[in-house]
Design a binder for these strands. Structure first.
Lengths: 238, 238
DNA sequence: CGCTAGGTTGAGGTACGTCAAGCTAAGTGG
DNA sequence: CCACTTAGCTTGACGTACCTCAACCTAGCG
């Protein structure tokens, strides 16, 4: 529960009642190996889920098999809250690394949203923050070159990881293959590789055994024109 | 009010009470000329708005002045519902053509969401549908070439226009410059021009005096691999 | 009649993609 | 301990989808 609570309290204060509502929320934990499908496209989930551990993604594909990941999720992210609103999935959610996921019945969530309006708004604001992140990905894909795009992604991930903890000094776990990263960046694998190497050779980052370390935060965030505002990492009456 | 009600009833049935709540919702209309800023970036709106007439967009920019539009909005779209959740804007909303916009105080909306949970969910599901559209733009920008990207956009817009009416047979108003379209597609103006011409010369579309006509829906939607499912254009208990 | 915004065209450059080969490290079986 | 396999990373050569620059064209408008 810790990561989800951290994600929420970063955005607004929770009352003791709200905290205990969350702590006591009926849920079921499931484990997924890397590459597993957590929620299939076109399914009609009857429960929503949040990530407790691991890295997951939303995936969309073309008929020729090309794949684009439209969001990356880390522990604390309510991955599928919008399933509560949309009913039929328009994309799939997959585990990129082994994942531990907590599932909550829609009925439980719906009851919660009706009895705790503030907590409900706070939860839905996570959906809005996700949308805000997606807008920034659109900006990256449309107007940033490969290097800037990767730099921006790494800045974003570091800031998000800092909220839920478990990161070292400017370092965070990122145990995915470059082929997967290519599906995030909308690039080919080969060019992704060259882009990663370029950031490494510029001394901006290191990336080894599944851990990214940002060696020069100023340099990387300047290159990316990174402005964390869109992540809503501030307490606000919501 | 008609377009908003059409947008909502396309997704779920409204009770008479909900209809009258909407009809009687306090609101204020404002007009904007093309290019005007409807909601500035970094502002803290105290009201949300929906489009009654015209074409609007969400805009994000880089320091060098390059611009990316992250969403296109037509009449009936609740452009800024998420301002209710996020407080500080992370992008600007601009009028692409002359726009008529209805503003509703956050206090009014908040009261509504607390007294009418179903209507509230239905409104928030519009936010989720926006996010779903954004995911598809990410797919387009990451994995579709210029022609497929434009084809997909036009298919999407036609389907959305059909819901709110006022369109001819496979035709809809699209009175923007190719430079603006380039900012939607993440392309240069020159290449956008060539892409438009190519679709025209293939006999798939015509685009003149601000009206796009899809001459060959099958051809265009095949080219785009368009599947309207993500627009949630079906009635569903929400 | 001239001005202007927007559309069109051509020529040349570049950031990417594709293909194909080779490398490295970790795991597997003998 | 050593072949052998495999997944992932790396490199080079070459192709192409897009970008940039710059000119010109067109229709609408004062």
């Amino acid at each position: 529960m810790q990561p989800l609570i951290a994600t929420l309290t970063e955005r607004d204060q929770l009352t003791d009642t709200e905290l205990s509502v969350l702590m006591n929320m009926e849920r079921q934990y499931r484990e997924y190996p890397a590459e597993a499908e957590i929620i299939p496209d076109r399914s009609r989930p009857t429960e929503s889920c949040f990530l407790v551990e691991g890295l997951a993604a939303r995936a969309l594909s073309l008929q020729n098999g090309e794949r684009q990941l439209t969001a990356l999720h880390i522990k604390g992210d309510f991955v599928d809250l919008h399933g509560l609103l949309l009913r039929v999935m328009d994309h799939s959610v997959i585990a990129l690394t082994p994942c531990r996921v907590a599932f909550v019945e829609h009925t439980v969530l719906r009851r919660l949203t009706e009895s705790h309006p503030h907590l409900s708004r706070l939860l839905f604001s996570l959906v809005a923050i996700d949308a805000s992140i997606q807008r920034n990905w659109i900006l990256s894909l449309g107007r940033r070159n490969a290097e800037e795009r990767l730099a921006h992604l790494l800045c974003e991930l570091y800031m998000r990881f800092k909220v839920v903890g478990g990161v070292g000094d400017h370092a965070f776990p990122f145990a995915i293959s470059q082929a997967t990263l290519a599906d995030v960046l909308g690039l080919s694998m080969v060019h992704t590789n060259r882009t990663v190497q370029h950031l490494r050779n510029s001394g901006l980052i290191s990336w080894q055994s599944g851990v990214v370390t940002i060696l020069d935060w100023g340099g990387l965030s300047d290159l990316a024109e990174f402005d964390p505002h869109y992540l809503n990492l501030f307490r606000e009456r919501r």
